Simulated assay, not measured.
Amino acid sequence: MLTRSVTLLILTATIAQSIGCAISPSIRQAFMDPGKEQRERKQEIHRLVDQRHIQTRLQAASAMLDAGRYADCERVLAEIEKIDPNCKEMVLVRGEALMAQNKFAEAAAIYDKVLQAHPADANLHHLHAVALELSGDSVSAMLAFQRAAELSPDSSLIQLSQIRTEAPGTTTR
C-alpha cells in the first residue's frame, strides 16, 4: 500500500511538472533525497549528545581541579578534546590547572592560543596577563592587562589589575 502511494505521488509530481505546474522546493527535495530530513535530525541529536557529554565532563574536570587531582583533570580534558578540540571552556580549565600547578609559562601559551580564536574576550586577556606576570614576562603582561582594560573598561577586577605596586626598596617620584 505504501509503495503504491509513493509511486502515485511520484507520478503525480512528474505529470504536474511536465504540464508546467510548479512544485514547491520542499516537495521536490523530499522526492530527490527522501532520507535527508532523518539524517539531519540524527546529526542534530549527535551534536546535542556531544554537547551534553562535554558539559558533564567539564563539571567533572572542574571538581577534580578543585580537589587538586590534576592528572585526573587532564585525563578528562583530553576526553573533551577528542570530542571538540576547539572547546574554549576545556582550554580555560586546562589553563587554570596549569596555573594551580605553578606552570605559568605553559598556561600563558595556552591562553595565547585561545586568544587567536577569541581576540575580543577581555577576561581571556586578563587571564593571559596574569599568567605572563607570574611567569616573569612583565612587559607582555602589562600589554595584555592594557588590552583587557580596553575591551572591558567597566570591569573593576580588570581595572584593579592595572594598578602596579612598587617593588620593595623602590620609591615613586
Results as ranks from 00 to 15, higher is better:
residue 143 L to S: 14
residue 138 S to E: 08
residue 152 S to C: 04
residue 25 P to L: 04
residue 51 Q to F: 03
residue 9 L to P: 03
residue 31 F to S: 06
residue 161 S to R: 09
residue 145 F to H: 11
residue 75 R to F: 02
residue 97 A to E: 05
residue 8 L to N: 14
residue 16 A to R: 02
residue 9 L to M: 14
residue 41 R to L: 13
residue 147 R to F: 03
residue 86 N to Q: 10
residue 153 P to M: 04
residue 120 A to D: 13
residue 114 V to R: 12
residue 2 L to V: 14
residue 53 H to M: 14
residue 126 H to Q: 08
residue 155 S to F: 01
residue 159 Q to G: 10
residue 82 K to M: 09
residue 71 A to M: 05
residue 145 F to M: 09
residue 105 A to L: 13
residue 67 A to D: 06
residue 156 S to P: 08
residue 41 R to P: 03
residue 81 E to D: 10
residue 121 D to W: 04
residue 103 K to Q: 13
residue 162 Q to N: 11
residue 107 A to L: 07
residue 121 D to C: 02
residue 18 S to Q: 15
residue 61 A to E: 00
residue 135 S to T: 09
residue 86 N to I: 00
residue 55 Q to Y: 09
residue 63 A to S: 07
residue 140 S to A: 15
residue 169 G to Y: 07
residue 102 N to Q: 14
residue 56 T to R: 08
residue 170 T to H: 10
residue 67 A to E: 06
residue 62 S to P: 01
residue 141 A to D: 10
residue 37 E to G: 12
residue 143 L to V: 11
residue 131 A to V: 02
residue 26 S to T: 14
residue 76 V to S: 01
residue 92 L to I: 08
residue 35 G to E: 13
residue 74 E to T: 10
residue 100 A to T: 06
residue 37 E to N: 13
residue 77 L to T: 02
residue 68 G to M: 02
residue 72 D to I: 02
residue 74 E to G: 01
residue 18 S to A: 15
residue 87 C to T: 03
residue 22 A to S: 13
residue 30 A to L: 12
residue 1 M to K: 05
residue 170 T to S: 10
residue 93 V to F: 05
residue 56 T to Y: 04
residue 63 A to K: 07
residue 33 D to W: 13
residue 125 H to S: 05
residue 80 I to C: 01
residue 119 P to W: 05
residue 5 S to H: 11
residue 24 S to W: 06
residue 148 A to E: 05
residue 109 A to H: 04
residue 7 T to Q: 09
residue 7 T to P: 00
residue 49 V to N: 15
residue 48 L to Q: 15
residue 15 I to Q: 07
residue 173 R to K: 10
residue 120 A to L: 09
residue 155 S to E: 02
residue 154 D to M: 09
residue 2 L to I: 14
residue 36 K to F: 06
residue 108 A to M: 02
residue 36 K to D: 08
residue 90 M to S: 11
residue 87 C to N: 12
residue 113 K to I: 00
residue 52 R to M: 15
residue 83 I to R: 00
residue 29 Q to F: 04
residue 79 E to W: 00
residue 119 P to E: 11
residue 144 A to E: 03
residue 95 G to D: 05
residue 154 D to Y: 10
residue 71 A to W: 00
residue 113 K to D: 07
residue 1 M to N: 05
residue 171 T to G: 12
residue 62 S to E: 13
residue 133 E to K: 14
